[in-house]
Design a protein around this nucleic acid. Sequence first.
DNA 1: GTAATTGTTAAACCTAACTTTAGGTCAAGG
DNA 2: CCTTGACCTAAAGTTAGGTTTAACAATTAC
Lengths: 151, 151
Amino acid sequence: MAVNEGLSIGALAKRTGLAVSAIRYYEAQGLIAPWRNAGGQRRFDRADLRRLSFVMIAQQFGFTLPQIKAELDRLPGGRTPTKADWTRISEGFRAALDARIVTLSKLRDNLDGCIGCGCLSLEACALYNPIDQAGEKGPGPRYLMGDEPAA
Amino acid sequence: MAVNEGLSIGALAKRTGLAVSAIRYYEAQGLIAPWRNAGGQRRFDRADLRRLSFVMIAQQFGFTLPQIKAELDRLPGGRTPTKADWTRISEGFRAALDARIVTLSKLRDNLDGCIGCGCLSLEACALYNPIDQAGEKGPGPRYLMGDEPAA
DNA sequence: GTAATTGTTAAACCTAACTTTAGGTCAAGG
DNA sequence: CCTTGACCTAAAGTTAGGTTTAACAATTAC
């Protein structure tokens, strides 16, 4: 009956819209660190709501969980993060996002040039330069986009 | 010794920069359909170079292989695709790409608003609207970005 | 007091887009 | 004849980001 027993995982799931399993998975990945009550159940405090908000937004922006963890690890330990802490971290987003927009715009401009010629030729097409740049970052999926094809 | 025996898979791999295993995988997915020589080895013709170019560019743009296959299936069967065929298909890219840029720009603008307040609050933050919009498209990875984090 | 809900774990499963491995064939060169 | 290198197949492994399942414990509601 104590007022400050923290949120259960189910409550947190409802508040964030995340699945309970996802929250447990995030804990396993080190993104959040709940404590346990007498019965062994996870208890979260309100700062964890904000951490999860951060995770969800960062995922929108295309960061992987390890990357997000790296950011979260830079929050001050020992005290609840302040607005200023979160603001500082948000600014990293801004730069990454800008870079992504620039990349896409370049890609589009190249495409505009190529629509005219219809070449898609390996030797000549400007669209291959970005591909070469992307290089090989190891195996695994390279799923880049949530959008449906316009076609 | 005939002049027109087509390219071997290794030659095609060198020309495209793709791994041999990737090309075989694409065949399994129905993206290309090489014929076989007397010894049972795959032989590709030059139009396949262009098909693979298309696949690589479409992947840059975030299309999945089934989506790309759907586009390729719309190429005329029975004859080598012309410039006009490829141009028609490229225009679909343009629209999809524009849409992606618009989405990202909105996201960035929202972020700009949020950096000031540092809230990242589930109740109030404008960044959650895009998340709600994205909805649930089923499980699996949602790896959106090749960029490194700016942080 | 008991039923229903919510929580716990570990392990298996899922998709996408490949790569790797194991075991075997085929052609060319020395 | 033997080795080297490119090719073949089928099946299993990889990564990310989870979900699902099974079997069980704790809490809550009546």
